[in-house]
Design a protein around this nucleic acid. Sequence first.
DNA 1: CGGGTGGAGTGAATCGTTTTAATTTGGAAG
DNA 2: CTTCCAAATTAAAACGATTCACTCCACCCG
Lengths: 351, 351
Amino acid sequence: MSSVSVRDVAALAGVSTGTVSNVLNRPDKVSPATVERVHDAIEKLGFVRNDAARQLRSGSSRAIGLVILDVGNPFFTDLARGTEDSAAEMGFSIILGNSDEKAERESAYLDLFEEQRVHGVLISPFGDIVPRLRRLRSRGIPAVVVDRTSWDNSFSSVSVDDVAGGEMAANHLLDIGRTRIAFVGGPLEIRQVADRLNGARRAIESHGGATLEVIPVAALSVAEGREAGLRLIARDKHQRPDAIFAANDLIATGLLQTLVMEGAVSIPDDIALIGYDDIAFASAAVVPLSSIRQPSALIGETAVKILLEEASDPDVLPRQVVYQPELRARASTIGSQPVSAAHAGDDELCR
Amino acid sequence: MSSVSVRDVAALAGVSTGTVSNVLNRPDKVSPATVERVHDAIEKLGFVRNDAARQLRSGSSRAIGLVILDVGNPFFTDLARGTEDSAAEMGFSIILGNSDEKAERESAYLDLFEEQRVHGVLISPFGDIVPRLRRLRSRGIPAVVVDRTSWDNSFSSVSVDDVAGGEMAANHLLDIGRTRIAFVGGPLEIRQVADRLNGARRAIESHGGATLEVIPVAALSVAEGREAGLRLIARDKHQRPDAIFAANDLIATGLLQTLVMEGAVSIPDDIALIGYDDIAFASAAVVPLSSIRQPSALIGETAVKILLEEASDPDVLPRQVVYQPELRARASTIGSQPVSAAHAGDDELCR
DNA sequence: CGGGTGGAGTGAATCGTTTTAATTTGGAAG
DNA sequence: CTTCCAAATTAAAACGATTCACTCCACCCG
């Protein structure tokens, strides 16, 4: 277990440990000749800086903690990728935690990040974590909430306007002439789900002549979508909606499968279907799925940027960044169309 | 920035710092009364252990580094989830790095992990990293290769028998009577791709009467799959294969879309299609995709287990664990069938 | 009654870097 | 020929938990 320390490097280069440290961190403060000599020594000895010692002395780490709700959801992995790219650019790395929508796991990750004295925390919250975030802040660790506005604006957040997104989705369904609309989603405790529903409700109420039915599901997964689909198939044909707004693309995918395969329902002729998130698989589904696109990677990048600003200047005021979502109309609502639409071709398939 | 240290805790509890440390790490060595007193003090002061200091003194960290090829690929996120669960159980956390099939990023992550003196490294390698892994080992940091056997057996690895998987896929296509088989995949430098192709080749050669065509693509993505699909559609009907083995499910998804939507090809009647990885979206596609299932989460769990063993006993010999893949026949090869097959119902759809 | 035993607790040394104040050096300015 | 300054470098003091070699002390046993 050869452990090469700055001391060894200093000895070989014939300088002091302080100089080695300067070469590592502020090379401009050291004469070029010395820099070279030190680098040679580092090379020769295979020295690698011990991050724990650095962090202990200098107080803060080069890692950022990120807690997301579900690694299985491409929306979140895209978001994570955004944070990773942005962080790497600034010389930081991301420690990714997956809370799996469990308060206990969420809490465990916050504990871990606190022990590690991470540079900052990004979190797409599940439970009520304001007290935890406050405590982190009092320790000098800033936090930014992602994919949700923070409760009382005491923390910065980067999110997408889910109410507008829900409105947009419902309006699209109304625009193509549908009137019996169903919202499939849940649990409503998840803020995003409730917002999307409220947006849809608003659109439909202000339209007149259209109805909205809520079909609750237990989780935002493909399996739950299938299950909801089976319930719909079981209905008499005339009892079915003529359009469905699914709370996210995983649910929409599940619906798509059971409705088409097992229900012989034609999409979009019998039922138009729109999802939410615009994950890469949405545009690649056999009936390409209309969806509400969120700038997932951008959310991550922005969140990192804000976090780093707050870290370097703790007195900056919390900011709420809200992006607007965007409609991606595809075959599942508008059927096959001549390839000439505005967005044709710019779908980013799997990145 | 209130910084509460063991010293403060010790003072309040009326004990020495050594005792506080013992309470934290070896509570059984301390009398119950003292344990309680110390815990009270910790509570009162809001003390949180500084991990950097702990690590500096005790030498090793509680974090495991994981480098994967592509976060956008559900196979790898499932694998990551497996490592995370397994690590959490043992009190470790995972630092996830995404190399994006770039040697430079892979290398940057290994640097980072080396500086952090992580407890161990798990890696699904892209470039030739044996020298790097050797160096890590010489520093006392063990490494386990995932999703690939290691080059010379000098490192432990956990993988799946891709040759057998390829053979299995091709045999399935032969079993349902197909004879003009195409393999769509690439680049062949990726070992897994080459192995799958070789397996298929072996099956077809030993069958007689069947042919294998290789259709190369530049990457294992949905977009590349679509592109390959377009090329197939452009062919005269009789020049097309009657079955396709795609190197992974992302490619299969892309193929599925163009063949069905734009080529009016019937799956599986005109062309049978089988993928690889059995990602959650495979079974949820509108024409559910036959695939070769790999135990992705299990690979991750096993890798963590082996890694921790090697970390605690550096003299243990490297082991190569090779799991066998499993065929999941679905509609894309066998069409719609009465629900009675062996595996019906046990598909894990998106968890 | 004395020596031995072991559980509980102590406190100083330690890990490897960064940082600070202090020191040297080579010139430029007076 | 001083004097003074900035740049380059140094030596030593942190940072905060863990560890290790000890000290106590109570208790048991012959």
